[in-house]
Simulated scan of single mutants.
Amino acid sequence: MRLLDSYLELGITGMARAAGAGWFDGHYGAALLAGYFMDREHDLPEHVKEGIERTCESFRKQKPEWFVPLDQDEQADPSLLQHVIDGLQQNVKQLRTSGHGLALGVLALKALRERPDMITPTVVNGLVKILKATTEDRLDRYWGIENYHGMTIDDVKDEVAPYHTTAEMAERAFDELHLVIPPRDINGVRYHLASEVVHNITHAHALTDLERFGYEDIVKPGIVNHRLQIYLNRHVPPFTLEDEVKEPAFEQIFSPLYWERLYSDPHALKLPYAALDLLKRFPPEKRAHAERNLCKLLTITD
């Protein structure tokens, strides 16, 4: 068994344990899950597998206590999974944290569907804590908007054309990659900019998986939130345009130039996993261009 095969259990464990530190720390376990499922769902070249393992092992070394095996005597109860689903439903009542509740929660849901023996009170309580925390966010997350919490789709209906299917959503998410500007601190405030565009992709992927699992009641309002997210992400300070990433360092997600590096950002695994899945839905004549634009985000990933 290679390291990749262990990342399903370790990813669930890491997410559950990290919940006490804050919802963002759930990214590290989620990155292991992304690596695991990327390997399971795609025919990965060996250098990609090695790159995933290199970065995942680095995450484990940073916080080894998060990945210590859980109590093996704790009884699993598959009915507890409903609490995770309830947390996902709460996250689509409004757009918060750029769709992180779904991006993290659906990876965990997917893993637990495969490992029902890990649906224990400890795991579920940790995941529910993350999902609750992702419904809270700072009001001024987006440049030029004082309070995005008060916005609804009615405020942006003339700015972003409607879409109603996950296939349309995937194409719209990739359409937004025409402009990639690295994150920046402005007057002491951090604006995520390109990182928000990353979340366009991971949010869309989470909704696509939920559709596969049959949760249409979550997907429908989620697509509406994704449309609002696209509008908000377009708010970019004009003076940052000088930083635009116009050309990627490589044009394919499997490029050795990407996978030979060691990353500190968990999105380094979560983004390519989400993108590879969504790109499968693109017609061949559109895929190469979409993948090339995605590589602009990968080029500036730390």
Results as ranks from 00 to 15, higher is better:
4 L>F: 03
4 L>D: 11
6 S>K: 15
6 S>P: 03
6 S>H: 11
9 E>A: 15
10 L>W: 01
12 I>K: 12
16 A>N: 10
16 A>C: 13
16 A>Q: 12
17 R>P: 00
19 A>C: 06
20 G>K: 14
30 A>P: 01
37 F>K: 07
41 E>F: 04
45 P>F: 08
47 H>Y: 13
56 C>D: 11
57 E>L: 15
59 F>G: 06
61 K>R: 15
61 K>Q: 14
65 E>L: 07
66 W>P: 03
67 F>T: 06
71 D>H: 02
73 D>H: 08
74 E>C: 10
75 Q>V: 12
76 A>T: 03
77 D>I: 02
78 P>F: 06
80 L>T: 03
81 L>V: 07
86 D>C: 02
89 Q>W: 01
90 Q>V: 00
93 K>Q: 15
95 L>E: 02
95 L>H: 06
95 L>Q: 05
100 H>P: 12
103 A>V: 00
109 L>Q: 10
109 L>W: 09
110 K>T: 07
112 L>M: 13
114 E>I: 00
117 D>Q: 12
118 M>I: 02
118 M>N: 05
119 I>M: 10
122 T>S: 15
125 N>M: 04
127 L>Y: 05
127 L>T: 03
128 V>D: 11
134 T>N: 12
135 T>Q: 12
136 E>L: 05
137 D>N: 07
138 R>Y: 00
139 L>S: 11
140 D>K: 02
142 Y>E: 06
144 G>Q: 12
150 G>I: 01
154 D>G: 01
154 D>T: 05
157 K>W: 04
159 E>Y: 09
160 V>Q: 10
160 V>H: 09
160 V>N: 08
162 P>R: 14
163 Y>M: 08
165 T>M: 10
166 T>C: 14
167 A>F: 04
167 A>V: 09
172 R>P: 00
172 R>Y: 05
175 D>V: 00
176 E>C: 09
176 E>F: 01
178 H>Q: 10
179 L>S: 11
184 R>G: 02
185 D>N: 15
188 G>R: 06
189 V>F: 04
189 V>I: 11
190 R>E: 13
191 Y>H: 10
193 L>Y: 11
195 S>N: 13
202 T>I: 00
204 A>S: 15
205 H>L: 02
206 A>V: 01
207 L>P: 01
207 L>G: 02
210 L>H: 06
211 E>S: 13
213 F>I: 00
217 D>T: 03
222 G>N: 03
222 G>L: 07
223 I>C: 01
228 L>P: 04
234 R>V: 01
236 V>T: 14
250 F>K: 06
250 F>W: 14
251 E>H: 12
253 I>M: 09
253 I>S: 13
256 P>A: 06
256 P>S: 07
261 R>Y: 08
263 Y>H: 09
268 A>R: 06
271 L>S: 06
273 Y>V: 00
274 A>P: 09
278 L>I: 02
282 F>L: 07
282 F>A: 08
283 P>M: 05
283 P>L: 08
284 P>H: 10
286 K>N: 10
287 R>K: 15
292 R>C: 06
292 R>D: 03
301 T>M: 15
